[in-house]
Write a protein that binds this DNA or RNA. Structure first.
Length: 162
DNA sequence: GCCAACGTTGGC
DNA sequence: GCCAACGTTGGC
C-alpha cells in the first residue's frame, strides 16, 4: 500500500467538505499538472492520504483520507466554464462518453479522520522524521505527492500528540 | 499584497 | 531545441 499527500484550498474544498460529502466520498477533480496526474494514476484502492490545507491562514495536514476509486477521466476537463476546462484536450464522444485517451484523471477519496488540531506546515518543518519530505522541499508545489510510510506515521503520531 | 519558484506556451 | 514571456501556486 502506498501513501500520499493531497493539497486542497479549504475555501474551495476542505476536509470537512469531504466528510459531509455523500458517503463521505468525493472525486478529486481539477488536477492539471502532469506529474500530479501521474501520481494519481499510480494510486490504488485503500492507499492512505494526508489531506493538506493550502493557501490558508494556517497551512497544514488537517486529517486523513483513503483512495476509494482508482484513476478515471476527469469530466471537468471538458466542462466549459469550469476552472479546469481544457479546450485543447480530448473532448467527449458524440454520445457524451469520455474521450478514449483523456488527458486529465481523478480518483475518488473517502474521509477517514480529522485531526483534533492540524499538523501545521510550520510544525512539520521542525520534525526530524520529515526531513526530505516532498512537501518541505524548496519550491515544491506539487498538489499530489508521494509520502513514505514513515513520514505518514510521523504525521499521525504528531496529530495524536497535540 | 508580495514574490519566489515552477510549469506551460509559442516564436524562432 | 532554446528560451523569453506569461500564468499559477502558495507561503508569508
Amino acid at each position: 500500500m502506498n501513501h500520499w499527500l493531497m493539497k486542497s484550498e479549504p475555501s474551495v474544498f476542505s476536509l470537512e467538505d469531504l466528510r459531509r460529502s455523500p458517503g463521505q466520498t468525493a472525486p478529486w477533480d481539477g488536477v492539471r499538472n502532469y506529474q500530479a496526474r501521474n501520481y494519481m494514476a499510480d494510486m490504488r484502492v485503500g492507499d492512505l492520504v494526508l489531506f493538506y490545507h493550502s493557501n490558508c491562514p494556517e497551512p497544514g495536514v488537517a486529517g486523513t483520507a483513503r483512495v476509494a476509486r482508482e484513476a478515471y477521466p476527469d469530466p471537468t476537463a471538458w466542462t466549459p466554464g469550469h476552472p479546469g476546462f481544457d479546450p485543447r484536450g480530448p473532448q467527449p464522444g458524440p454520445q457524451g462518453q469520455p474521450p478514449q485517451s483523456p488527458r486529465w484523471l481523478m480518483v475518488d477519496v473517502t474521509f477517514l479522520a480529522a485531526f483534533p488540531q492540524p499538523v501545521t506546515l510550520a510544525h512539520m518543518r521542525g520534525m526530524a522524521e520529515l526531513a526530505g519530505m516532498v512537501l518541505l522541499r524548496k519550491g515544491s508545489r506539487l498538489s499530489v505527492q508521494p509520502v513514505t510510510p514513515a513520514q505518514f506515521q510521523a504525521v499521525l503520531a504528531q496529530a495524536g500528540r497535540i
